[in-house]
Design a protein around this nucleic acid. Structure first.
Length: 282
DNA sequence: TGATATGTTATCTT
DNA sequence: CAAGATAACATATC
């Protein structure tokens, strides 16, 4: 269930390995997981791997791309004999023989190495798209939280028109991309702002503070390689991240707030689990 | 049995 | 048309 830091981690790892690989064979086990004609891939070469929001873009020859969204339970795992690289949803597929029963797409390269796309819940997808179509997708998205175009002025002016709770506002991809449920809870805790506050009620100063901490938690997550909850799979070829050891609010129900010693409580907001300190987050 | 899960998006309503 | 609310997608686990 990757957020931006997890996706960025996967991209950085695959970027070291995939460029230069040539597709020899493609097996699509679940039609819903792949859009386009996968036969077109055979013979194409990988040029580059990049990220925008939580989308992974594998740039190919012929102005084509494999655009991927892992959604909640997607994984990309590269396999070459003893080498296993990638990431995504932490599950036994990390350590199991591949393909696993969650493998939806299997790619084999001309040098014999392989790439597996696993997705338990099948929310995610891979699409074969031209550069132009990728751009069409990108222009629909608000700038990434890592993009300098996201300034406190920019956010403040948008928030003025929104009365949804601030947590939902910062998770809205039409406003800013890349802040998921975990990092939203943590950023709000550090900023000492209640997730329930209507977006329009935030002062300019509060928006500035919130933006600062959003960037901080996302960058910290990237530095640590993302967040991995299932301890069983930590340490497998370095696939697991480390942010789970530094969570400020998410998953800490009943524990002490690091700001004030108050108790972290859990509520449901917009259908998502939301953790915050009732004492210092106002 | 029922609630929950790190994400989007279609659809309906206001 | 814009913003908000809700369900939906499909599966596993506690």
């Amino acid at each position: 269930m990757p957020e931006l830091p997890e996706v960025e981690t996967i991209v950085r790892r695959l970027r070291e390995i995939l460029p230069g690989k040539k597709f020899n064979q493609v097996n699509v086990f679940k039609d819903k997981s792949f859009a386009g004609d996968h036969r077109e891939l055979v013979g194409l070469k990988i040029r580059e791997v990049s990220r925008r929001a939580k989308l992974i873009r594998i740039h190919l020859s012929n102005d084509l791309n494999l655009l991927t969204h892992l959604k909640m339970t997607g994984q990309l795992i590269y396999l070459d004999d003893d080498v296993r690289v990638g990431g995504g949803h932490p599950s036994a597929d990390w350590v199991r023989g591949l393909p696993s029963n969650h493998t939806r797409i299997h790619y084999r390269f001309s040098d014999g190495s392989e790439l597996f796309y696993n997705d338990m819940r099948i929310f995610g997808w891979m699409r074969l798209l031209t550069d132009e179509l990728v751009n069409d997708e990108y222009v629909k998205l608000a700038p990434d939280i890592t993009d300098p175009a996201v300034t406190s002025n920019y956010l403040y002016s948008i928030f003025q028109k929104r009365k949804v709770p601030i947590k939902q506002a910062i998770m809205n991809n039409q406003i800013v991309c890349g802040i998921g449920n975990i990092y939203a809870s943590d950023a709000l805790n550090l900023a000492k702002i209640s997730p329930l506050r209507p977006a329009k009620s935030l002062s300019k100063k509060e928006v500035t503070r919130l933006l600062k901490f959003c960037r901080q938690v996302i960058n910290r997550g990237i530095k640590l390689g993302g967040t991995t909850f299932d301890g069983k799979y930590v340490g497998v070829d370095g696939m697991a991240g480390g942010y789970q050891n530094e969570l400020k609010a998410y998953g800490r129900e009943g524990e002490k707030c690091f700001n004030c010693g108050g108790k972290i409580i859990k509520i449901k907001l917009g259908g998502r689990g939301t953790y915050y300190c009732d004492n210092c987050q106002r």
